[in-house]
Design a protein around this nucleic acid. Structure first.
Lengths: 236, 236
DNA sequence: ATTTGTTACTTGTGATCACAATCTTTGACA
DNA sequence: TGTCAAAGATTGTGATCACAAGTAACAAAT
C-alpha cells in the first residue's frame, strides 16, 4: 500500500497543528462583528479602519472583506466601498424561499442518514433551547442555529452545508435586531422542532421536510412583517 | 431630499461607465481558462505564474483566486496552495441534488413570471441549440447554459441566480471533457427543453419543475457513469 | 541502494509605498 | 444666504519588498 505512505505514514497520535493566517482571523472577526450587531447596515466599512482595529495592515482585511463579498454577506457598491447590505422585504423573502428549497431537501436527506447519537444530541440542544427561551434569554438564537446545523450535518451534504451557512450569514445580522421587536411569547417554532425530532426518529423524510418548511416559512412571515412595518415607518 | 443629491443627481440617460479593476479582469480570465479546459484538475495553480501570464503583479491574481475559492470553484489545500478540485462521483451527485432543489424551484417561479418575449427568446436559443447539436458542434454546451440561465432569469430571484452560477462554475470545467466521452447521438435533454417551453407557455409551474428535474437528473446519471468508469480505470 | 540531513528554490502571506478616484470641507462669488 | 468650484483628506487598488513555510534537489552515511 504505497499510496498511504506519503509523508504522514507515521503520524503519532499527533494532529497536524495548523497556523491560522491573519486573513482568516480577520474574516472570523468581521463575521463575529456582523453577527454581534456591531456593524450597522448601510454604513460603509473601510479597510483601514478595520485594519487599525485589528492591529494589522490592510492586506488581511482586504481579502477578508472580499471573501465576505463573494459570499454575499457584504455588498460591494459601484464606488468600490463595502457595506453591510440593508435587508429589504424582497431580499429576505427570496432568501427564505431558497432556504426552504435547500434546507428542506437536506432535512429529508438527514432523516435517511442520521445516527442515533446525533439524534440524541439534537434533542439535547432543543431542550437547552426551550430552557433559554423560557427565561427570555436572547442567546437562544445561537442554540436555534445549532439545532438546525446539526440536522444539516446529518444530511451528509458538505457542499449544500456551506451554501446554507452563507445564507444564515446573510440573514444573521438582521435577525438579531428584528427579533427584539418580534414577540417571543409564542414561539411556535418549538412545535416544529418537536415534529422534526419525531420525524427523524421514524426516519420519515417527508415529515422532516415539512417540519423544516413550516419552521422557515412561519418565522419568515413574522420577520417580513417587521421589515414591512419598518419600511412604511421610514417612508413617512 | 438631500440624501439623493449626492453626485449622481443629474444622471442623464447615461449609464455610469465603470472602470474594471485588474482583479476583476484576472477573475474573468481565470474563470475563462477553467471553463476552456486550460487548467487541469488537481494540479496546483500558482499565483506568480498566473500573474506573469496576465502581466500584472501578484495582487490582483491573489484576490481573484481567493474569490474563486470562496465560490468553491477552486479549492484551498492545507498547504495553502490552490487547485482546481478533482470531480468525484460523490461531489458531482451532491451538486446535482442541490441543482435539482434550486433550479427546480426557480423553474416553477419562472413559469409564474416569465414574459412573452422572454419565452420567445428561450425558444430561439433552443432552436440554435438543436442546430448546433445536429452538426455535432461542441459549442452547444454554451447554448444549453444560455437556455437554462434565461429561464432562471425569469424567476426573478437574483440571489438564487448567483448561487446557481457558482454551481455551474463548479461543474463546468468537468462537463466539458466528460461530455466528449458521453454519447451525444441521443441527447434526450432536448425533449425536456421542449416540455419546458410548453409548460412555460401554459404557465404550468409543476410541469416546468418536472422538466428541469428530469433534465438535470438524467444528464447527471450519464456524467456520473463516466466518472465512475474513470475511477475504476484509475484503480487498475 | 535506501534513507537521512542539508541546501537551494519556490510559493503564499503580510507590510509598506504610490497613485488615482472619491468624498468632504472650505472659501469665494453671486 | 445659497451655489459652486477648488483644495484637502480619505479610501480602494496595485506594485514591490521582506519573510517564513513548504518543496525539491542533492550529498553523505548506514
Amino acid at each position: 500500500m504505497t499510496s498511504r505512505a506519503t509523508g504522514n505514514g507515521e503520524s503519532f497520535g499527533l494532529e497536524r497543528l495548523e497556523r491560522e493566517t491573519l486573513q482568516e482571523r480577520a474574516y472570523a472577526e468581521v463575521k463575529k462583528a456582523m453577527m454581534g450587531g456591531d456593524i450597522a447596515a448601510g454604513e460603509p466599512i473601510t479597510i483601514r479602519a478595520l485594519a487599525r482595529a485589528l492591529g494589522t495592515s490592510v492586506m488581511p482585511v482586504r481579502e477578508a472583506l472580499r471573501r465576505l463579498v463573494a459570499e454575499r454577506a457584504l455588498e460591494l457598491l459601484p464606488n468600490r466601498s463595502v457595506i453591510l447590505p440593508v435587508m429589504t422585504p424582497e431580499r429576505f423573502e427570496e432568501i427564505s424561499r431558497i432556504r426552504i428549497a435547500l434546507e428542506g431537501m437536506m432535512a429529508e436527506s438527514a432523516a435517511k442518514y442520521i445516527k442515533e447519537d446525533e439524534l440524541r444530541r439534537m434533542a439535547k440542544v432543543n431542550e437547552d433551547l426551550v430552557a433559554k427561551l423560557r427565561q427570555k434569554n436572547k442567546r437562544y438564537l445561537a442554540l436555534n442555529q445549532e439545532f438546525h446545523f446539526q440536522l444539516y450535518h446529518a444530511a451528509r451534504m458538505p457542499q449544500a452545508m456551506s451554501i446554507v451557512e452563507t445564507l444564515w450569514l446573510q440573514i444573521g445580522p438582521f435577525l438579531r435586531d428584528a427579533n427584539s421587536e418580534a414577540d417571543l411569547d409564542d414561539p411556535d417554532f418549538l412545535d416544529h422542532h418537536e415534529a422534526m425530532l419525531q420525524a427523524l426518529a421514524k426516519r420519515d423524510g417527508k415529515r422532516a421536510r415539512a417540519a423544516i418548511e413550516a419552521d422557515i416559512s412561519e418565522a419568515a412571515a413574522v420577520i417580513a412583517g417587521v421589515l414591512r412595518e419598518r419600511a412604511s415607518e421610514a417612508a413617512r
